[in-house]
């Protein structure tokens, strides 16, 4: 048994010994790119504050005009896939590992470890919801402020007493929270691992940035709802 394991290890050395380094680097680099993407994305969405969405629309047109969408979306998807493979390989997969990780996390009551459990969970949430989001955007291309506004404001299933859930709104609230959580703490963890900043101080800075982005995100959702009330679907912005 021990011998067989050693043989496997020896054979492994034949492969490029730098693989582990590249894999680790790839995880960090794709992580940073995705955080950058997400924050830029939210800033773009945030332009809905300005001019009732005129700037928002012209940015969207710009994406088309300069083929940024045609290149950017597949590239982002690729980066996401790489990130999933690189980061996911370290999450506990086997049932035995899951059990160990869960038991230890509960026992330790250690903040950073709980945060990481949150990251694993938000990763799963993002994986599903971001795909749905992407599908929605692609099938209703191009992006327009009123289209987005009405999607967010769309009434969902009605419940007893006329109470209804705007499920798209809640979908985006969930995605926004999950995305920001994963990105903020993901960036924190990258910095921790490479040691560029003091851990605790850096935590505060990143939490601050995350709060700002969340503020922008929630604000944008509010703006969409207001916009949907002001402008009918297909109506012109002014």
């Amino acid at each position: 048994m021990e011998l067989a394991k050693n043989l496997q290890k020896t054979l492994n050395q034949k492969a490029n010994p730098k693989t582990d380094l590249y894999v680790d680097l790839a995880e960090s680099v794709t992580g940073i790119i995705l955080v950058g993407f997400l924050w830029m994305h939210m800033l773009f969405v945030g332009t809905i504050y300005i001019n009732n969405g005129v700037l928002f629309n012209s940015l969207s047109e710009g994406l088309d005009k300069y083929y940024l969408a045609q290149i950017g979306i597949p590239a982002t998807v690729l980066v996401i896939l790489i990130h999933i493979f690189m980061a996911g390989r370290r999450a506990p997969m086997r049932l035995r590992d899951l059990r160990i990780a869960w038991r230890l996390t509960k026992s330790l009551k250690h903040t950073d470890t709980w945060i990481w459990v949150g990251q694993v969970i938000t990763a799963l949430i993002i994986g599903i919801m971001a795909s749905m989001h992407l599908w929605e955007i692609m099938t209703t291309w191009p992006i327009e402020a009123t289209k987005s506004a009405h999607r967010v404001a769309l009434d969902g299933i009605a419940f007893m007493g006329g109470f209804s859930i705007k499920y798209y709104l809640w979908f985006y609230v969930a995605l926004l929270l999950a995305g920001e959580y994963h990105a903020g703490f993901g960036l924190y963890r990258i910095f921790v691992k490479w040691g560029w900043f003091e851990r605790h101080k850096m935590g505060y800075v990143l939490k601050g940035i995350t709060l700002i982005i969340l503020f922008i995100g929630f604000g944008a959702l509010y703006m969409f709802i207001r916009l949907a009330e002001m402008v009918p679907l297909g109506g012109a912005l002014h």
Binding site: P17, K18, D20, L21, V23, D24, R90, L108, H110, D112, T113, W116, R189, I190, V192, K193, R199
Partner: peptide, 21 residues
């Protein structure tokens, strides 16, 4: 690099920092 430049060494750490705490 031969000793710790791999997943069992420096690149295996996920950064949970319970060790540090």
């Amino acid at each position: 690099f031969e000793v710790v430049g791999n997943e069992d060494g420096a690149f295996g750490c996920v950064g949970l920092m319970a060790c540090d705490d």
